[in-house]
Structures are given as structure tokens and as C-alpha cells.
């Protein structure tokens, strides 16, 4: 391995790296300062998220309603349980990582490779879970109506106060599609409703026909008894007026411009911040894989030091650290 190291004739002297500032190697120190700068990047994103949330405090979605799915428990309201599980997976993979670092200090190649492998598996499970969360969020659950001012109106059962999905009270009418062929050069013409599951007119009609459905607006009111903030539920009469006067479109699920749960900005920040974090997890898994193969090849055994494992370990823990904050600010607060 000596052949790959250039000699400069300053070895053993101060400028040849004889003394370590802060008693830490160059690589580890730089990893720390990279982490510092990356932490500030995430701070910028989360601070922007906080700014927008305070600005649109009323129409901000209630996290418990958005993320309430759990695999194999269809229709069960399980708020946060899945993200909590994801948190445990990531903390668990952090633990196997730090165990790998510890095994590296004891020059135990077998244990290092085992723990690295477990860390990589945990990372993959986490990225997969995030994809599943995205899928649920993008598909949505109940559907809602958008007003002229860009606010969201959601539907509730008058008696139970439970959410009602659009497909429970809206009848789908005919869609006007005129088909053409190759000779005309276009496939079809339509009034634009062809792709929509429901049109706003169909929702309005379904609402009139079903007297047990009412509307929940985004306006926050404080419950006098408990002190909890709740969204304002309109009376049946007010709901009819509101729907006929203001509603302009149907929203199903969430994307970068629309969000059935509330402010579209929430969806933008969710996709961007969890996406950026997921990208970090993914690149962390790749780094871990590279180091894992190096461990298997015995590179660090020959080098006499497993410090590389320590450096990717720092990065991996940082990813865990960011998730702790994302978890709090997206799901808990």
C-alpha cells in the first residue's frame, strides 16, 4: 500500500502532518465540518418550512390525518405509528453502525462486516418505507374541494363528525369524449373533464342529494373546554352556500400544486425535505456499501486502521440525526 502514498520529504515534521490539530485526523475533521455545513442546509429548509407554517397556520394540514396508514391495516386509523417504526429502524441501523465502528477499533473484521451489512439493510428498509409514505400521500384518501381563494373544503358526516370520501356520496356522470383516429391527427377531444374522477358539478349535486354530509373549512377555532385547536365545521345551510359560491375544483391526493389535506406548500416542503433526506439516506447506503466491500476485501485490515468505517459512520449518524428533527417537525408538532 505504501506505493500509493506520495512522499514529500516533510514526514514527521509539523507541516508534514506530524501534529494533529484538535487531536483528530484530517478525514474525520473534514467529515465533521461537512456535517456542520449540511446541518445548516437542512436548517435552512426546516426554517423555511417553519416560516411557511406560521404564515399559513390555519390551512396547514393536521399530520395525524395525513400520515395514518400502516401496512396491512387498511382503513385503520393509525396516526404516526408507521413513522415511529421508521424512526426505530433508523435508530437501529445507527446502533449497528456504531457497533461496526467499535468492532473496527478491536480490528475484528468479521464483526465489522456483519454490522455494516445490517446497517445497509436497515437503510434500504428505511428508503423503501419513505417511498411507501410518499405513495399514500400522493394518492390521498378522501378527496376535497378547492375554493377560488385556493383553500380546501373537506367533507364530514353530520352525525359522527367522521370524514366522508368523495366516492361515498358523489355519482360519476357521463364524460364527453369525441374520439378521432389517425386520419384526423388527434385521438380525441373533450371539455377537459375526461381525466377527472369527479367534476365540481357532480360533487355539488352529490352534496345536495346527501343531507348527512357537511363541510369542514380550514379556519382554526379554539375549543373552549379543552383548549385544543380545531377546524371549523359548517352547518348544513352554510355548507351549501359556501360550496355553491366558492368551490371551483376537485382535489384528490397531493402533488406540487394541489393538496387535498390543506396548503399545497405543505406538500412542496414534504416532498422536498423528506426527499432530500431520503437522498442522503440513499447516498449513505451507497457509501456504506463501498466501505462494506472494502472491509470484505481486507483493505482496512492491511491498512491497520478501520477509520474509514468511522467516517462513513459519522455521516450515517448525521442522517439519523436529521430524521429525528424531520420526525418532530413534520409529524409531531
Amino acid at each position: 500500500m505504501d506505493t500509493t502514498v506520495a512522499t514529500t520529504g516533510t514526514e514527521g515534521q509539523k507541516w508534514g502532518g506530524a501534529s494533529k490539530p484538535l487531536n483528530v485526523s484530517y478525514g474525520k475533521m473534514m467529515m465533521w465540518f461537512f456535517i456542520l455545513s449540511d446541518a445548516l442546509t437542512f436548517t435552512g429548509f426546516l426554517a423555511a418550512y417553519g416560516f411557511s407554517r406560521f404564515k399559513f397556520i390555519e390551512e396547514w394540514p393536521i399530520a395525524d390525518e395525513v400520515f395514518n396508514h400502516f401496512p396491512f391495516l387498511h382503513g385503520t386509523d393509525a396516526p404516526m405509528f408507521y413513522v415511529a417504526l421508521m424512526t426505530f429502524i433508523l435508530i437501529g441501523s445507527s446502533v449497528t453502525m456504531v457497533l461496526a465502528v467499535d468492532a473496527g477499533h478491536h480490528m475484528n473484521k468479521k464483526k465489522v462486516s456483519l454490522y455494516m451489512l445490517l446497517t445497509i439493510i436497515g437503510g434500504f428498509i428505511f428508503v423503501g418505507s419513505q417511498a411507501w409514505e410518499w405513495k399514500n400521500f400522493i394518492n390521498g384518501e378522501y378527496g376535497a374541494v378547492k375554493t377560488k381563494g385556493g383553500k380546501i373544503l373537506q367533507f364530514l358526516d353530520v352525525e359522527t363528525g367522521k370524514r366522508v370520501a368523495l366516492n361515498e356520496f358523489v355519482k360519476v356522470g357521463p364524460r364527453d369524449v369525441e374520439t378521432y383516429g389517425n386520419s384526423e391527427g388527434i385521438w380525441y377531444t373533450t371539455s377537459g373533464e375526461y381525466n377527472a374522477t369527479y367534476t365540481i358539478e357532480e360533487v355539488k349535486k352529490g352534496f345536495v342529494d346527501n343531507p348527512n354530509v357537511t363541510i369542514r373549512t380550514q379556519q382554526l377555532i379554539v375549543n373552549e373546554e379543552t383548549g385544543a385547536s380545531e377546524k371549523l365545521v359548517l352547518s348544513r345551510e352554510d355548507a351549501l352556500i359556501k360550496l355553491n359560491k366558492d368551490a371551483v375544483g376537485v382535489v384528490e391526493g397531493a402533488n406540487l400544486t394541489e393538496n387535498e389535506y390543506g396548503a399545497p406548500l405543505f406538500a412542496d416542503f414534504f416532498f422536498f425535505i423528506t426527499g432530500f433526506h431520503g437522498f442522503h439516506v440513499f447516498s449513505g447506503v451507497i457509501f456504506n456499501l463501498i466501505i462494506f466491500f472494502n472491509v470484505l476485501l481486507g483493505t482496512y485490515e492491511r491498512r491497520g486502521s478501520y477509520e474509514m468505517v468511522e467516517k462513513v459512520g459519522l455521516y450515517w449518524h448525521f442522517v439519523d440525526l436529521v430524521w429525528v428533527f424531520v420526525f418532530t417537525f413534520f409529524y409531531l408538532v
Binding site: 436548517t43 416560516f51 406560521f54 404564515k55 397556520i57
Partner: peptide
């Protein structure tokens, strides 16, 4: 955080 949250609340 302090600057942005105070500003966000003000705009609200």
C-alpha cells in the same frame, strides 16, 4: 429560526 418564525407569524 427566531427571525423566520417571528416573520411568518407577522405575515399571518
Amino acid at each position: 429560526m427566531v427571525i423566520l418564525l417571528v416573520e411568518g407569524e407577522y405575515i399571518y
